[in-house]
Amino acid sequence: MALSKGKGAWLIAGFNTMSDSEKAKYNRVALCKFMSKVIYGICLSLLLWALSDLLKLTWLYILGMVLFVALLLFTIIYANTGDRFKK
């Protein structure tokens, strides 16, 4: 919840360990909002995994896994190219 409001940058691994001068180079609000959307997507894939186990539907598990892997690949590529979160 804090990330979706643009707060809680200390929760983001890597950003948390930067020096204060390095942190000043980044737009914290944009980074936090982006990471909150990623976390919501990961939660959706975990929900699909749980539902697949409860309902005994293999295709839900596969859908959740595809969503999870695609989301991780997209996040790694999007966040590390184009200096999107730098001021």
Rank of each mutant, 00 (worst) to 15 (best):
I12Y: 13
L67T: 09
L63R: 02
S36F: 03
L73E: 03
G8K: 14
L60F: 03
S21G: 01
G14H: 12
L46V: 09
K37W: 02
G41V: 02
S45C: 11
L60A: 02
A50L: 15
Y40A: 10
L31C: 04
M35G: 08
K86M: 04
G8F: 10
A9N: 12
A9F: 13
A79V: 13
I39P: 01
G6Q: 10
I76L: 04
M18W: 15
G6P: 08
I42W: 07
D83E: 06
I77E: 03
L60T: 00
L48I: 07
K7D: 04
A70F: 08
L73R: 00
A30R: 14
A70E: 01
R84T: 01
V66L: 15
G64K: 08
K37I: 05
V29P: 00
L46P: 02
G6K: 10
G14R: 13
K23M: 02
G41F: 09
L55P: 05
T75Y: 06
V29L: 00
I76Y: 03
C43R: 06
Y40E: 04
V29S: 05
A79W: 03
I12L: 15
A79I: 08
E22N: 09
I12Q: 14
K5T: 10
L51W: 13
R28T: 06
M35R: 07
L67H: 10
A13Y: 14
E22W: 02
W49P: 07
L55E: 10
T17H: 13
L11S: 12
D83L: 01
F85S: 04
L47M: 08
R84C: 04
T17A: 15
V38M: 09
L48R: 08
L54F: 06
I42M: 09
K87T: 00
G8E: 13
